[in-house]
Design a protein around this nucleic acid. Sequence first.
DNA 1: CTGAAAGCGCTAACAA
DNA 2: TTGTTAGCGCTTTCAG
Lengths: 328, 328
Amino acid sequence: MANIQQIAKRAGVSVATVSRVLNKSTTVSPKTRNKVEVAIKELNYEPSMLGRNLRNSESRLLLVLLPNIANPFYTEIINGIQDTAIARDYNILLCETDSKPERENIYFNMVKNKLADGVISMDPTVNMQKLNELAEHYPVILCSEYEENGDIPYITVDSELAAYQAVKHLIKLGNEKIALITSDEKYLYARLRRAGYERALEEFNIPIREEWIYHTKGLEFQYGVHAMRILLQQEIEPTAVFAISDTLAIGALKAINMEARDQEPIAVVGFDNISFASMTNPTLTTISQPMYTMGCRATEMLLSRIKKEKVENIVLDHELIIRESTML
Amino acid sequence: MANIQQIAKRAGVSVATVSRVLNKSTTVSPKTRNKVEVAIKELNYEPSMLGRNLRNSESRLLLVLLPNIANPFYTEIINGIQDTAIARDYNILLCETDSKPERENIYFNMVKNKLADGVISMDPTVNMQKLNELAEHYPVILCSEYEENGDIPYITVDSELAAYQAVKHLIKLGNEKIALITSDEKYLYARLRRAGYERALEEFNIPIREEWIYHTKGLEFQYGVHAMRILLQQEIEPTAVFAISDTLAIGALKAINMEARDQEPIAVVGFDNISFASMTNPTLTTISQPMYTMGCRATEMLLSRIKKEKVENIVLDHELIIRESTML
DNA sequence: CTGAAAGCGCTAACAA
DNA sequence: TTGTTAGCGCTTTCAG
């Protein structure tokens, strides 16, 4: 493992010149450049990022915070982040918190310890107070989940509007008994989607019934199954369900299938348009978020922040994707 | 952003002593230690990993190579890797190649450039020649996909045996017309699973029919849908299908559902036991791999290699999970 | 266009 | 138990 000194020696130049060649500086004569390049080849030299990073006091690593990598919602966003980062010579450190505060501390320390140059948080369960403190000194962007009137720049979609449209779609189909499967309302996205649900019902003068609103403990499939089972046991059975995440909606679909009911089918709408959503039976009507784009833009925002530039919050467009689960 | 010098000055000690406190060396008197800790608190000091890493010539980052983060098969393995790495004060760099060789080069360079201390490759599409070259100088472990008689240590399951058992299960159920949905046979796992399929058929004197063996271009759902459509168009329709991945099997299930057939149901077996496999309709019979454990052990192997220790290859146990798709 | 030299922040060998 | 000091590998200023 050669270092820059050895290359300099071999090429008969100074380390400064080798560094200039490495960094594609134009102020090197072709002849010298060639000598250096030959030496690099001969010794199989690979410059150490460790030295470079220390010198430049940057790591060129971006920390991406998410609760759980298993939720397919995140995968497309991550693709966007990754592609954008790589194109700019950065790399990403994917950090799952599993909603555990200890984990969060480890990751925040990585930023403070200069192991990462900035953070994109997609974690609704993050401790916002700590994140705000971190954001006072280090570049931070919120992606998808954000804080209203907070100081951290964010990129998101209009959850309230999307939920409103989803529920309105169910109403237009003739449903009046519409249940909501949502998660803990300590999360902003859950509150907003519930608000959209309620706005649609109110607009059509449909009363809101608490027994049709179920709060899950998580977003995994099985919570959706459980929620739907409970809803199917209500005195008056809903004829349609809006779930605030595709994973929950798919679980609900499963629960409905398992009942082997001979009544009218129950219409289901999800949220996110994960890839499974077109593999279920019936296929799932859902809200599509531009996840890849969201990842790209979030990364651009973060890189701007790292360069101390100002950034504006972004609200991206969504779309209602109508499939079989509301067509039966 | 204070550095170690400033702490030393403030505490009235040398930088060496501060370093000793940071690294929990025992040879520091309680009184001195206290002075240092106070200074650290007062100045809000966070040690820089950049300096430490250069000095120790390590990055404490592990590179995890995979083709595509969207395949849920990888998520549990990644959880295992991540948990084990964090417990040992390492972190992981998740690298998606998207089966693009350029990407691969970028990632391999990260190792050569000391940005990562080692590699766990789960990427069947990786250029094995290049990976072998890398492994001559840097710690590398293969996880899941491996190379027979290669020099790189690996951890995997017995794909041939698992496939054999899966197909035998279909035969025992009375199926003789069993199709295979597999991927490109340039991948070892595909060749092994096909071998297991053929061994089971041969054992029961069932002829192997090439028209019932379909090779997909990828592992995404839609390839499974497409494959099954083709298989359903064969002159003689198979009564059962073994797919070498759950994602393909789920696609096959979808294609079968879409046909709205009134014939006998077609039995389906997948491979991996991804979480979605119990959400499909019918739920999917599949081979369960101990994915989390695989990730943990792979990481332990890699950390051993980084410490220049010898490691043994590992073959983990699998299990056939019987669900509705073979019970109808 | 090139070289000498300082220094990024840290650890560890050696000395006291 | 603590301090002095060299040096990890690189970039960049300044001088030539």
